Amino acid sequence: MSRRDQFFRDREAGFNNRFGVATHLTSYNALYDPNMRHFFENSVVQSHLYRSGQIDKAGRVIDLDKNKSKLHIIEKEFRGAERAEEMRQREEEEMRRRVQLKRHQALDKARKEEKLIRIKEDRKIRQEIVLATREAQGLTSLPSPGKKKTTKKKKRAT
């Protein structure tokens, strides 16, 4: 870096453009500016300001810094309400799932019982057909369809 560059750098660092103006400028809000009053008296502008929450129904400016605590409380209540609604929806979905599961189980049970009844009826009809054909052939010494023969086995001594 040359001496000339260093000179200009030092010169620029010492430059002050404040010229006696306060170091901290006050915040500007056009809603409080009397020169802008004619603009904000327009009904279209006022309806926009009202919808955006910057003025109330009477046209008074709402100070958001003063109402931050109120807004915070309202936002907190909204978050709580949203959480409660989500929980309610989850519980409702879980309840629906349980009811649907019970319905499916009841339907499966009813189908199984119906199938079992059909199987028993088919077996009974088959036995009647076999009995009728045997009687037609002259075989009358048949065991009754409800009784089963049991055979006893002798135990061997070891």
Score class of each variant (00 low, 15 high):
residue 114 E to G: 07
residue 127 Q to V: 02
residue 10 D to P: 01
residue 147 K to M: 10
residue 21 V to C: 02
residue 118 R to S: 11
residue 105 Q to T: 07
residue 66 K to L: 14
residue 61 V to Q: 00
residue 33 D to Y: 05
residue 115 K to H: 13
residue 47 S to K: 10
residue 75 E to K: 13
residue 28 Y to W: 11
residue 21 V to L: 11
residue 77 E to A: 12
residue 120 K to N: 10
residue 126 R to T: 04
residue 141 S to P: 02
residue 66 K to R: 14
residue 11 R to I: 05
residue 37 R to T: 05
residue 124 K to A: 09
residue 58 A to D: 14
residue 24 H to F: 11
residue 150 T to R: 07
residue 31 L to H: 03
residue 118 R to C: 08
residue 102 K to G: 01
residue 104 H to F: 08
residue 93 E to C: 01
residue 22 A to C: 04
residue 117 I to P: 00
residue 140 T to G: 01
residue 116 L to M: 14
residue 145 P to E: 04
residue 31 L to K: 00
residue 113 E to Y: 03
residue 141 S to I: 04
residue 102 K to H: 09
residue 33 D to I: 03
residue 38 H to E: 07
residue 72 H to M: 10
residue 142 L to G: 02
residue 6 Q to S: 08
residue 80 G to D: 11
residue 80 G to H: 08
residue 76 K to D: 13
residue 68 K to H: 13
residue 97 R to C: 04
residue 24 H to Y: 07
residue 32 Y to I: 00
residue 58 A to Q: 11
residue 158 T to P: 02
residue 149 K to T: 09
residue 25 L to F: 07
residue 8 F to A: 04
residue 130 V to C: 05
residue 128 E to P: 01
residue 37 R to Y: 02
residue 110 A to T: 09
residue 31 L to I: 00
residue 67 N to L: 12
residue 47 S to Y: 04
residue 37 R to L: 09
residue 59 G to E: 02
residue 102 K to Y: 05
residue 42 N to Q: 04
residue 12 E to K: 04
residue 152 K to V: 15
residue 19 F to A: 13
residue 41 E to D: 13
residue 21 V to R: 13
